[in-house]
Amino acid sequence: MTVTSEKAMPMQDDTLISVRGVKKYFPVHGGWLRKKIGEVKAVDDITFDIKKGETFGLVGESGSGKSSIARLILRAYDLTDGEILFRRANGSIVDITSLGDREMREIRREMQMIFQDPYSSLNPRMTILDLVGEPLTIHGVGSPSEIEDRVAELLRLVGLRPEYVARYPHAFSGGQRQRIGIARALALNPSFIAADEAVSALDVSVAAQNINLLQDLQEQLGLTYLFITHDLGMVEHISDRIGVMYLGRLMEVGPTEEMFSKPLHPYTEALLAAVPQPDPRGNRERKRVALKGEIADAMNIPTGCPFHPRCPYADAKCRAEVPALRSVAGGRQVRCHYAESLDLTGVAAQ
């Protein structure tokens, strides 16, 4: 088993995953000979820690690199550069980017993913027993009868009746299918789950039920979550800390309450201002300046601060110099030249 590389700083005791200087560039081909004509910097120099037992939320516009980060952590993608440290259940720390396939297979038991689309992520020709039991079968854990018992236990854990094991996915509602996906992810007792837009496709009332379930499971099983979503109200509710992504980079990282009540980055401010609230009077009173322009093309990232073409506070320095992600007071990090001098507006607690 690989040990932490020499160059790396040791991981803090309360940290489960440490993402360090991670990059993922995708080549872009085009033209007559399908030559490489450029690259998409889907993830560019990302550094953050996920603490044991916490929920780390990732937000940002479409294409900003959220799913790519989840895939890199689960090694569904190989990375271009950087390292990802993971604290295993047995206490050892591994750099998952340097593991071979066999070692990675072991680690995968400890890291799982749940997906957005409860309709397409479950094979329609498999019964619930087969779907939830599959990870156990693949890893050769238990006899058929033991697997059956474990599946029944998992179904109960996610609030589904164990009698349903012989049914097929189409016999379940969207919210129930999501629960089947959760049961499947829990089969091998992972310590870490990445949830990519896990409740985005669900109805309001069902999303609320499943969010409560995820929080109960976290408490019962001591799980750590990476929670990716477009829904800022949901991410505020579920996350202890949040990372805000823009064009493959982290713009701001910090504890949820502090960040949302007093953002340090103009992009965070803009995102929060854009959310229409279920409060008509509040919406009428709030000054909601729509952010101008659209997210830049990931192949043509602007010079200087990548956000400068849309930033109401940008100046000449912003157009020329790339701000670094730097640590500021209160366990927060921000990538803006003027984080200290700007007085930004968040969402007031009610």
């Binding site: 609320a208 409560n212 109200g233 509710h237 959310v275 009610q350």
Partner: peptide
């Protein structure tokens, strides 16, 4: 009641139907 409001009270559980 089941929608998490931005800046809303931090109840641990969402109310559900």
């Amino acid at each position: 009641r089941s929608i998490p409001k931005l800046g809303g009270q931090k109840a641990r559980r969402l109310k559900t139907i």
